[in-house]
């Protein structure tokens, strides 16, 4: 399982204008893992994903590139190039294309794949994984419920057949039942070989299914350990699992 890491982040620093939001963040994701990044609002979790996807300008506090994917630097790449390289992002709030139908959203996920047949096959797979979407196929996405939109966003990301999936708070604003469905979906995708990096606020769920986790606070990595260890860590329990 531990060949070279799929994703390597070294001393990542990121800015919004003049304001620094990430300070020397380092982490890695190995092939086939589910890695969680947890932390409070404003910690910089979304920014982290943004840096990987090329949406946010990043640089390294050390020498060399800040973000390495499969050994190659992602620094300075445009989002459309990163996506073409096999990484897909499910952004915060799903961000489905509101005026397009559920089906069109999914088809668009496979934009980079010119092979019609393959597209159809992946479509069948995705609809099989999320039967709810099948029912809503011709509905405009804006009329779908929050949970359905989240499923749609994940399905859309899967349509590009990525090797690496990033999820930004997939459980945000969702009913607990819906949340389990989503997480079960993520686990099953992972079992089929997809590496996952998950940014979450629902700490219990995230840590339960993750192989490893990082705690990000105020733009810095505070803790890093296996999912199990983090769940029983006293700091994490007090700060995030307060009963």
């Amino acid at each position: 399982m531990h060949d070279a890491p799929l994703l390597n982040i070294n001393g990542l620093e990121a800015f919004y204008g003049d304001v620094q939001v990430l300070w020397g963040v380092s982490l890695e994701v190995n092939p086939g893992e589910i890695v969680a990044v947890i932390g409070p609002n404003g910690a910089g979790k979304s920014t982290l994903l943004g840096c990987i996807m090329g949406l946010v300008k990043s640089r390294s506090s050390g020498s060399g590139p800040a973000v390495l994917y499969q050994g190659e630097a992602l620094d300075g790449q445009k989002p459309e190039e990163v996506v073409a390289g096999g990484i897909a992002l499910v952004p915060e709030g799903a961000r489905v294309f509101p005026e397009m139908t559920c089906l069109d959203n999914l088809l668009l996920g496979a934009y980079l794949n010119k092979d019609r047949q393959q597209r159809q096959e992946v479509l069948e797979q995705v609809l099989g994984m999320f039967p709810r979407l099948k029912e809503r196929v011709n509905q405009p996405a804006k009329t779908m419920s929050g949970g359905e939109r989240q499923m749609l966003a994940i399905g859309r990301a899967l349509m590009s057949r990525p090797d690496f999936l990033l999820l930004d708070e997939p459980s945000l604003g969702l009913h607990p039942l819906m949340t389990s469905t989503i997480f079960e979906g993520i686990q099953s995708i992972n079992q089929q070989g997809l590496t996952v990096l998950l940014v979450e606020q629902k700490v219990t769920f995230a840590l339960k299914m993750s192989d490893r986790g990082y705690v990000l606070e105020q733009g810095r990595v505070k803790l890093s350990a296996s999912g199990e260890e983090l769940m029983h860590d006293s700091y994490v329990k007090e700060a995030y699992l307060a009963v």
Binding site: M53, L55, K78, P79, E80, V83, A84, A88, L89, P91, R95, F97, P98, E99, M100, D104, L107, L108, G109, Y111, L112, R156, S160
Partner: peptide
């Protein structure tokens, strides 16, 4: 606009430019 990938890409770009880039569209 409604039944081709290019057409969908155009619509997507109009509705959410950043997200369109995240599906690989060269905006």
């Amino acid at each position: 606009l409604n039944h081709s990938q290019t057409g969908r890409a155009i619509q997507a770009t109009a509705q959410d430019r950043e997200m369109a880039r995240l599906t690989g569209i060269k905006v």
